[in-house]
Simulated assay, not measured.
Amino acid sequence: MQLVVGRIGRPHGLRGDVSVEVRTDEPEKRFVAGAAVATDPASAGPLLIESLRWHSGTLLVRFEGVNDRNRAEELRGTMLVIDSADIPPSEDPDEFHDHQLIGLAVLTPDGERVGEVSDVLHQGQDLLVVRRGKTDVYVPFVKALVPIVDLDKGILVVDGPAGLLDPDAIV
């Protein structure tokens, strides 16, 4: 399974640098000078990272062979991806990679299935996006609210206050 680790944004300057919207919690491992990065669409890559730097909180990357603003603009919107099989498992039993959580069934402490994890957001605090029918609810991914994650069974348990999993509740 391919995992998106970044999205190429607008060009920066005239020499082919691009901004990258980082979509991984480990950018220092995913974006390294000399590394080849697969792309979606595949026809855009793979791209070889020539150099990178942070500028005002934005990752700026120069790819080999992308030497001007026009070529950089052609890459805009391209997703940078890695194969989930290339990610080693965590040694911490309470640490999970996003791809391990997406697709897990969400249960209440009583065993009632209430949805499925459709995404994980990293916005200061990790949030599980739980798909409930046609709506999403957001659950902070903390041990107090998500006491059980069982990858082998394909489930996680959400034990939160009343209304946490109700998309119509005002909490």
Rank of each mutant, 00 (worst) to 15 (best):
P140Y: 01
V146C: 04
I82N: 05
Y138T: 10
A72D: 05
H99Y: 14
E112M: 11
V114I: 14
S90R: 14
P89V: 10
G57Q: 05
V139M: 04
I82Q: 10
P140I: 01
D152S: 11
T58Y: 07
E64H: 09
L104H: 04
V66N: 02
R53P: 13
T58F: 08
D126F: 05
R113V: 13
I148Y: 02
P46A: 06
N70I: 14
P109T: 04
T108V: 09
V106M: 07
V129D: 11
P41E: 00
R131I: 05
R53I: 10
D136P: 01
S84E: 13
N70Y: 13
V106P: 06
G115S: 10
V81H: 03
A144D: 15
D110T: 15
V130E: 10
G111Y: 03
D126M: 12
L52T: 05
P147Y: 09
S84Q: 09
G160C: 04
T135K: 15
E112Y: 09
Q100Y: 03
G45N: 00
Y138N: 08
V142C: 05
P109M: 07
L101T: 10
A38D: 15
D159M: 05
D83I: 00
L48D: 11
E73H: 12
G103V: 04
S56W: 14
E95A: 15
N70K: 14
F96L: 01
H55W: 12
D126I: 11
A85S: 15
D136M: 02
S90C: 05
E91Y: 05
P140H: 02
D152M: 04
R113K: 15
L52V: 12
P89W: 06
D98V: 12
A44V: 07
E73K: 15
V139W: 03
D94C: 00
K143S: 09
T135Q: 15
